[in-house]
Every structure is written in C-alpha cells, then in structure tokens.
Amino acid sequence: MPDPAPPFQNAQVAAAFAGFPTGTRAGLLVLRDMIFATADETPLVGRIEETLKWGQPAYLTPDSKSGTTIRLGVPKTGGFALYVHCQTTLVSEHRSLFPTDFTYGGNRALLFDEKQVLPKAPLRLFIRNALTYHLKGSQK
C-alpha cells in the first residue's frame, strides 16, 4: 500500500481544503492522495509542489517540469473536479479510451459526484499522463 499523501505544504492549501463541504472535501482528498501516490510511482516526475492557483489546490512538477498543472476544485454544477490546462490533449485522449467511465467537463476537467465510486485505475492513468504530459514523444 502506498504511503499516505504528505501533510499540506502551506497553510493556504490547508485552508482551501477546510473550506470545501464535507462530502466534496473527502473526494478531493482522495484525488490529492492519488496525485502524490502516482507521482511517487512514476519515473521522471520528481517532487510535487502543492500550491494555490485561482484559489484552487494545484499540483506542479517544478523540478522536472514533466507535467501540466493539475487543479482540484468544485464546479458550479456541484460535486468535485480534477482540472488540467484546456489546451492539453489529456481530456480528449482519456475520453477516447474511457468514453463512459467519467463525466467530462469540456476539454479541461473530469467531473465527479460525491456519491460515486471513483474508477481508480483509469483515474490514475489520467493523473500519470498529466504528470508526464511534457515528456510526450520522449521516454516516459
């Protein structure tokens, strides 16, 4: 079993998580754990920086620069979401592999309901692809 996610790296990120509704927070913490666990298991990713971008928890690969930023948040429609930059091909590629496993928010988000069981293997693949997005075409 992988190690649990590390403690929050700064008070602002901890406060952002504390501000989420309870059910939403639980789902977002599962996604946070998956980001850190996937980074630990993926060669060339390196250290994950946890910060805020647009008021949302964000995860970057500052040393390796291997990935695109992953953000976690609450969409206007409710539930919770994992966001990536809208100009990446991550969501469209994932949608072609898993057309019915996820609810997609345009070309930038995977959307989740608080009560749904997260499809862990396909979700970990998405996170891995985001963390290694800038390595496309080179060795992953």
Rank of each mutant, 00 (worst) to 15 (best):
G105P: 13
E49Q: 04
G67L: 03
L135K: 09
Q139M: 15
K120E: 10
Q56N: 12
A16E: 07
L131Y: 03
S96C: 13
A18V: 10
Q9Y: 02
T88N: 12
F36M: 02
G78H: 07
G105S: 01
P122M: 09
E50F: 04
G23H: 14
A15V: 15
I35F: 01
A39V: 02
G78E: 05
Q87C: 05
H134P: 01
G23D: 09
L110C: 03
P99N: 00
A11P: 12
L44E: 11
P7F: 06
N10E: 08
Q56G: 14
S64K: 04
A121C: 05
N10I: 11
L131Q: 06
L52C: 04
G46S: 01
P4F: 05
Y83G: 04
A37Q: 14
A26F: 09
F98G: 08
F80K: 01
G27F: 08
L44C: 15
H134I: 05
D3H: 08
Y104R: 01
D33H: 15
A130T: 01
G78Q: 12
Q56T: 06
A39I: 01
S138G: 09
P122E: 06
A14D: 07
G67W: 03
T88G: 15
S66G: 03
E50R: 02
T132F: 08
P6Q: 06
Y104W: 03
A16I: 03
L28V: 09
L111E: 11
T100Q: 12
P6A: 15
F17A: 03
Y59F: 12
F126K: 10
D101V: 13
E41L: 12
M1R: 10
W54Y: 02
Y83N: 11
K120F: 13
Q9I: 14
S92N: 14
N129E: 14
T42N: 13
H94K: 09
R32V: 00
